[in-house]
Simulated scan of single mutants.
Amino acid sequence: MTQSMADRKVGVIGLGAMGLGIAKTLRNHGYTVHACDARPGAAADFAKEGGVACATPAEVAAGVDVVVSVVVNAAQTEAVLFGEAGAAAAMRPGSTFVMCSTVDPNWSIALEARLAQLGILYVDGPISGGAAKAASGQMTMMTSATPEAYAAAGHVLDAMAGKVYRLGDKAGAGSKVKIINQLLAGVHIAAAAEAMALGLREGVAADALYEVITHSAGNSWMFENRMAHVLAGDYTPLSAVDIFVKDLGLVLDTARATKFPLPLAATAHQMFMQASTAGYAKEDDSAVIKIFPGITLPEGQSK
């Protein structure tokens, strides 16, 4: 079935590492992408490549039937929807809000109900895969939504991501699976940093250790990806230390509600907290390795 011209318009709010990749992917799939970002000039830069720059979330929402929000957390999502010039007041009944942030699942469930009162459909749709996969359209989406929301926004979801998992017929399941993914991601990064730090402490050449581990049973995707940043001495944030302070905090909050023990997640959370308070909050999450004493990091990035 041929999509209408309205279907070929989509809004993206948040043009950070993932959001910009999503906006470009949708544009490459033939969508007219209306976009805004809190940073001055970000939307205008995207518009130079063929998008439509908007000044506010409300302006984005006024021109489209599907709004994709790619901001950091629940507080920013609240501001996008209900803050000054927020999207919710401008969205037409029957339009769809796709929430891509990592949030408390109970908050996501409540948001679905709030938007339903306004006649707005909702997709609980956290994302994973990093900036490169977002830009290539190969990221993963962990979604849950009503059949009506999937019917309205499914074409956008399929264009955004290589894998769109449909995990339930109401909000909550998508966010639950995402925080479980973040439990593993955070623990794997912390373990990778610990292993590399031990190797450096014992005088093993970092590049040799990396080569061996990435071809051995002890490898993980996070070791291979994040320890490459350490080898390069490049802590430019693709995903910052404070992201895992937040996300592992959500993991622990969820488990605490039912008194479920998560000893590894709790230890990893403390490691990221230590890195954050030591001054590395805004650095790449691989900077968690900087908490280990008595090691000299590659490229002299030891402070």
Rank of each mutant, 00 (worst) to 15 (best):
R114H: 06
T96L: 04
V123W: 06
G94I: 01
A88F: 06
A116M: 02
L115M: 03
A74R: 15
N73F: 08
L118Y: 05
A134W: 10
F82A: 01
C100M: 15
E112R: 05
F82V: 00
E78C: 00
G83V: 00
G86E: 02
V123Y: 09
T77F: 13
A113P: 12
C100E: 08
T96W: 03
T140M: 11
L81C: 11
M99C: 14
L111S: 05
E78G: 01
G137D: 09
E84H: 12
V80S: 07
P147Y: 07
A75H: 13
P93F: 00
E112W: 08
L111P: 05
G119M: 04
T146H: 05
E84I: 05
T146K: 04
P93I: 00
V98S: 07
Q117F: 00
I109L: 12
T102A: 04
N106S: 12
P147F: 05
L111H: 11
L118V: 04
F82R: 02
T77H: 13
W107Q: 05
E112F: 02
G83R: 06
T77K: 12
I109H: 12
T77R: 14
M91I: 03
D124A: 09
D124L: 01
S95K: 05
L121W: 12
V123Q: 06
V103M: 13
G83I: 04
A131V: 03
K133F: 02
R114W: 02
W107D: 08
F97W: 15
S108H: 08
P105A: 10
E84P: 10
T146S: 14
F82D: 04
I127W: 12
A74E: 12
P105M: 03
M141V: 11
Q117S: 09
A134H: 12
S144K: 02
A131I: 01
L118P: 06
D124V: 02
S144W: 04
G86T: 01
L81R: 09
G137R: 08
G86Y: 07
T102R: 10
G83F: 05
S136A: 14
I127T: 15
E112P: 02
A87V: 00
A79D: 13
A110H: 10
I127H: 07
L121E: 14
M139V: 09
S128Y: 03
A113L: 11
T102I: 07
A79R: 15
Q76A: 11
E112V: 02
A132C: 06
I120N: 03
L118D: 13
T96N: 11
G86R: 03
Y122F: 15
R92F: 01
A134E: 10
K133W: 00
S128V: 04
A89F: 00
A145K: 08
I109Q: 15
M91S: 09
T77L: 14
D104N: 14
G130R: 12
R92D: 00
G137E: 05
S128P: 01
